[in-house]
Design a binder for these strands. Structure first.
Length: 292
DNA sequence: CGATGATCTTGGAGAACGCT
DNA sequence: AGCGTTCTCCAAGATCATCG
């Protein structure tokens, strides 16, 4: 069983260099007699080797370098764990750097970050497991351990109220000088163009549909569903293309990946020149191509 | 060259929108 | 009103840049 593979790392005793610079997963838990700051909402913990788990994560490159060190020392702008803990402590978020308006990243002041580092060292203990299947292992860990500080991918009913409140705390805007528009702060991460391959396969048909001016075709939904997981948000989109310029749809990975394929196709550029083309995919996986 | 810091990217959830 | 579509926001790093 996977759970047996984890090694312990005690920040008070162990050298960071004992953690390998390999990909893998890690678990943060409270030491005995330690507890998370009380925000008035009870938290239910799941134990891992008799310790209450608070957070699990993955390191796709190096457990030691990028991720662990960031959690124990960096700042909240690079560590989800630090940011969540600081918010629970009631520290004020401030812009992480001069690009706050575009990246939306936040951290705490030097004093608070330092207090946080001390608290983490004395109250938390970590377990790590170097492996290559970190994505699926992470899902397993979240399911099995229901860590209260894991917000993404955590749909457990237990602690949902706590997580909702934590999300709110994390999203409180810095009240400093940055009250001028905080729009377009699209910062985020992960992923590998899940749908590009599929669209490459469909490109010839799409091109011929454009030549026909109007065509509807049903795509293989299983291709999309096995590539990504959009059970709730769906796969549908609509792209209005003018003069070969394909708009970027920030909310739809499916549409974004089609844009990538179209943008790379010289044949498409030639065909789309001086035309208005609409490509849409509905929930029945019918791809509708229209040329005006 | 490794550590640290700054910037960029992706997929997903759910709210808002808008058509019939 | 209902439901499909689009928009907005967010989690969680990945990657690029810089510094000692």
């Amino acid at each position: 069983m996977i759970m047996n593979e984890f090694q312990v790392f005690d920040p008070l005793k162990d050298d960071v260099n004992t953690v390998p610079a390999l990909s893998g997963n890690y678990i943060f838990a409270l030491r005995k007699n330690s507890r998370l700051p009380d925000i008035g909402i009870p938290v239910t913990y799941t134990k891992f080797r008799d310790y209450d788990v608070i957070y699990v994560g993955l390191a796709s490159n190096s457990l030691k370098d990028r991720d662990i060190k960031k959690h124990f020392n960096g700042n909240a702008g690079g560590s989800t764990l630090r940011k969540s803990l600081g918010c629970l402590f009631g520290y004020n978020l401030i812009p992480r750097d001069s690009h706050y308006n575009s990246n939306g990243k936040t951290k705490f002041n030097v004093t608070d970050e330092s207090k946080l580092s001390d608290w983490i060292k004395t109250n938390l203990i970590m377990f790590y497991y170097p492996n290559k299947e970190f994505d699926s292992v992470e899902s397993l860990l979240i399911q099995a351990l229901n860590p209260p500080l894991n917000l993404d991918k955590n749909h457990n009913v237990i602690n949902s109220e706590f997580r909702k409140h934590l999300t709110k705390l994390r999203n409180s805007k810095p009240n400093y000088y940055y009250n001028n528009t905080i729009e377009n702060s699209n910062q985020n991460n992960l992923g590998k163009e899940l749908y590009v391959k599929i669209w490459k396969g469909y490109l010839p048909i799409i091109l011929s549909a454009i030549k026909c001016k109007q065509k509807t075709m049903t795509l293989d939904r299983s291709l999309f569903e096995s590539a990504g997981n959009r059970k709730n948000s769906g796969y549908s989109f609509r792209l209005d293309i003018a003069n070969g310029i394909v708009p970027r749809k920030s909310g739809s990975a499916v549409a974004r990946d089609l844009k990538k394929v179209l943008d790379k196709s010289i044949d498409f550029k030639t065909l789309a020149n001086k035309k208005s083309i609409t490509i849409s995919l509905n929930t029945n996986f019918e791809l509708i191509v229209q040329v005006i």
